[in-house]
Design a protein around this nucleic acid. Structure first.
Length: 575
RNA sequence: CGGGCCGUAGCGCAGCCUGGUUAGCGCGCCAGACUGGGGGUCUGGAGGUCGAGAGUUCGAAUCUCUCCGGCCCGACCA
């Protein structure tokens, strides 16, 4: 490709609306343009990177025996109604009506459609299967943000495994786990595999592939010592022992004028340290007012509450609802004596005595509360959000919390979709059994943006060779001089002939402009052909990443670059 | 959905508060000249429904209202 004939629109300034580094760089370096909130055009440079990522994904998926499909993005409502998700996914699905008034949706994921196809499987002898596609997904996100990291239309590699039993699913899951590791490594991403909440997808287990980055939206707890890592939606920690307060024969009420917070009660005369208080929150779970109890110094994880309670929908109760239910406002609430509302409590409260909590009367608290004796807990659920520095649940090392980008997620689904959509096979004994499914996703553009978040410097993007839009650029310093122009052209031709993905910067621009642009775009190798070097028969080879630069004989330049590129290409991590 | 901010040339912005020349600046773009190893200099030029609509006014980029779009924080999120 000749730069002078290409459309690589680099910008001098950062786009005004940018926040994430990857967004700024991908726009400024001419890889992407925003069309509207959450929808981006990939320009030729971006499309080149996209194609390379997709090729890596394909190779690795094919490597685990997966077969590629291509399914519609347009789905009839009926198929989503059969799984129950037409009503459960809510506004995140783009819905429309066709000309006859029939309900139609844009696909946000394809469990239902693949399960329908899997209904054609009739015998256990046809299992296992792994099916995948690389296709556009639509999700009407409430808040698209951070450029390509969170959008409403994006490409996903989604795959689905079909097995006779749980052991088969475990094997398919493991193969995906390893394939994902390799895919991300080859794209230049070091990922952390973390336990995650299965959320609305359902199923028994899931693992997210996370790239630590301040631009991310998830927080993960990880242990540097034993390797334990989990999304905070799921993470647990060991807890240091704490002392109970003085016990009493029965809870004793005391006045606490103006005390509305845990913090205030710790300083109040006759109060208690936060770890001897019971925090009482009121939530509405699927329409039911529910008390949620935690230790005073602990924070609730709403995701854990959702997962643990099995509720579909959850919201904090309004102050009016709280008063109606308990007769007091937030700040004076407690679970003692509450009968008519279900009480969910975190295990950190189990067996605690001498605790302090609200008396369900404004400006009054109770002391000497014995949780087992005084509070009717319906269910004990892990509800507490892990904090940095708490001991690892496996090895007691202090946990770190890292903000991360989720680039992949793999789920053990079970039989939810196969049962709903009739994907059954006969087993060896002739009995009909629902196929056990798994589902596995990678966001292509998000992975691209994640690489930029991780691989950049003050001058621009630093693409790994494997997914760079070009592997090398031949920068002709003074293209008007036939000597430089010819020498550059020869090197360019020779590299092309050797199968190197090479760009010829033959523009009539000043050298500084060309160097800046090459750096901004992030091409791994640069061959600088200029009159100064040519006087001695030399050109310069520069690595974008390290800035290491050396002169070589003009006749040996193509060979030297090709050799480096081919050597770097042959490196396949994770094998 | 709640809170905040912003829409003026391809990009980045000023002007608005306090209404009044022909709506400006930098970068980019076009032509020419000089130049030529890290975004060079000079000369000349093209480029605008001031997000849209309504209103107030002799007069609106500027004031008022409505709508549309975008960004950020939160809620939400497969």
């Amino acid at each position: 490709m000749r730069w002078s004939e290409s459309f690589f629109p680099t910008l001098r300034d950062d786009p005004a609306d940018a926040e994430a580094v990857s967004h700024k760089l991908l726009v400024r370096a001419g890889f992407a343009r925003q069309l509207m909130s959450g929808a981006y055009s990939l320009l030729p440079l971006g499309q080149r990177v996209w194609l390379k990522i997709v090729a890596i994904v394909r190779r690795e998926m094919d490597g685990i025996g997966a077969q590629e499909f291509r399914l519609p993005a347009l789905h009839p409502a009926e198929i989503w109604q059969r799984s129950g998700r037409w009503s459960s996914v809510g506004d995140e699905m783009f819905r429309l009506k066709d000309r006859r008034g029939a309900d139609v949706a844009l696909g946000m994921t394809h469990e239902e459609i693949f399960a329908t196809l899997a209904a054609e499987l009739k015998s256990y002898k046809q299992l296992p299967q792994i099916w995948y596609q690389i296709q556009t997904k639509f999700r009407d996100e409430p808040r698209p943000k951070a450029g390509l990291l969170r959008v409403r239309e994006f490409t996903m590699k989604d795959s689905y495994s079909f097995d006779l039993d749980a052991d088969g699913l475990d094997r398919a899951f493991q193969r995906h786990f390893e394939a994902y590791r390799r895919i991300f490594l080859r794209c230049g991403l070091d990922t952390l595999a973390v336990e995650a909440s299965v959320g609305a997808m359902g199923g028994s287990a899931s693992i997210e592939f996370m790239v630590p980055s301040p631009a991310g939206e998830d927080r993960i707890a990880c242990c540097s010592s034993c390797g334990y890592a989990a999304n905070v939606e799921k993470a647990t920690s060991a807890l240091a022992a704490v002392e109970d307060g003085p016990g009493l024969a029965a809870p004793e009420a005391f006045a606490t004028p103006g005390v509305r917070t845990i913090e205030a009660l710790t300083r109040f005369e006759g109060g208690a340290p936060a770890d001897r208080q019971i925090k009482t929150l009121v939530y509405v779970l699927d329409g039911k007012t529910t008390l949620v109890l935690l230790r005073g110094d602990h924070a609730l994880s709403e995701q854990k509450l959702l997962d643990g309670s099995g509720a579909r929908e959850l919201r904090p109760a309004s102050e009016a609802e709280i008063r109606a239910a308990l007769g007091a406002g937030p700040g004076s609430l407690g679970g003692v004596g509450v009968q008519e509302h279900e009480i969910l409590a975190d295990p950190a409260l189990e067996g605690r005595r001498g605790m302090v909590t609200g008396a369900n009367s404004d400006d009054r608290h109770l002391r000497g509360v014995d949780v087992a004796r005084d509070i009717r807990v319906a269910r004990w659920l892990d509800l507490r959000e892990v904090r940095e520095g708490e001991p690892c649940p496996m090895c007691d090392t202090p946990l770190k919390i890292e903000v991360s980008i989720e680039v992949g997620h793999i789920f053990k689904l079970g039989t939810r979709y196969s049962e709903a959509l009739g994907a059954m096979v006969l087993d060896e004994s002739g009995a009909s059994r629902p196929i056990v499914m798994g589902s596995y996703g990678i966001g292509v553009e998000r992975a691209m943006a994640a690489v930029v978040e991780r691989c950049h410097d003050k001058d621009g993007i630093v693409w790994p060779l494997s997914i760079a839009p070009f592997e090398a650029v031949v920068t002709v310093v003074n293209p008007k001089q036939p000597a430089t122009s010819d020498a550059g052209g020869d090197i360019y031709d020779a590299l092309k002939q050797q199968g190197i993905d090479v760009l010829l910067d033959d523009r009539d621009e000043r050298p500084g402009v060309k160097f800046k642009d090459a750096d901004l775009i992030g091409i791994p190798y640069r061959v600088t052909v200029g009159p100064k070097g040519l006087e001695e028969g030399k050109v310069e080879i520069t690595r974008r990443k390290t800035r290491a630069s050396h002169s070589v004989d003009v006749r040996k330049a193509a060979e030297a670059v090709a050799e480096s590129v081919l050597e770097e290409r042959s490196f396949s991590p994770g094998r």
